[in-house]
């Protein structure tokens, strides 16, 4: 019974081709550790250098997005960094035919959904040349409002992906929606 409970979860993941799954509070240390495991697994799979680097690059941007922007967070302003806050996210890496698929999700505020959707639609619809030009422009520009990073993460994901990125939102309650972003390499 006990074994069955967890085995069933594992089977659900395996049936979807998932080889790595993380659901929980995300930290830079988790990024480092899981990142090393991904490099090892892809090296054992004999993935080519470009594929390995691209899967890894997408993974890093997805993880850092969750670490920085997930709206599901536990703050404690009484403590010093890195204990001030920790954020929750879900990330899976799986196979779909010959592709590696990096899929990440986290809560966002519903008021941010339209802004995100517009930005991601624009990026999804760009071809490689447009992405390159837009990346260059964004690198020069300051970070966007509501962005703590360089605002370049989504673009890096789209550049590394071998198919158009996919994304979706679903409302969770009055305040939050669940946001997912999927990239195939």
């Amino acid at each position: 019974m006990l074994a069955r409970e967890l085995f069933d979860i594992r089977q659900v993941l395996r049936k979807q081709g998932i080889i790595f799954a993380y659901s929980g509070y995300v930290t830079e240390t988790v990024l480092s550790g899981v990142g090393e495991a991904i490099k090892q697994k892809l090296t054992i799979d004999d993935a080519d250098t470009k594929t390995l680097r691209s899967v890894f690059a997408v993974f890093v941007e997805q993880m850092q997005n969750m670490i920085r922007y997930s709206a599901e967070k536990v703050p404690n302003s009484a403590l010093e960094p890195p204990f001030i806050e920790i954020r929750y996210g879900v990330l899976t890496i799986g196979r779909d035919g010959d592709d590696y698929v990096v899929h990440a999700g986290n809560l966002v505020e519903r008021s941010d959904v339209e802004r995100l959707r517009a930005r991601l639609s624009k990026i999804r619809d760009m071809n490689k040349e447009e992405l390159r030009a837009s990346h260059k422009e964004k690198l020069r520009a300051g970070p966007e409002e509501g962005s703590k990073g360089a605002g370049l993460g989504f673009m890096e994901i789209a550049r590394r992906a071998t198919k158009p990125i996919e994304f979706d939102f679903t409302d969770v309650d009055d305040k939050y929606a669940f946001f997912t972003l999927k990239a195939s390499v």
Binding site: R53, E61, L139, R140, L152, G153, E156
Partner: peptide, 13 residues
């Protein structure tokens, strides 16, 4: 550089 993430790209710039 073998690999750099998006925030490092800003530093390189």
């Amino acid at each position: 550089l073998i690999y750099l993430n998006s925030s490092s790209a800003k530093a390189v710039m």
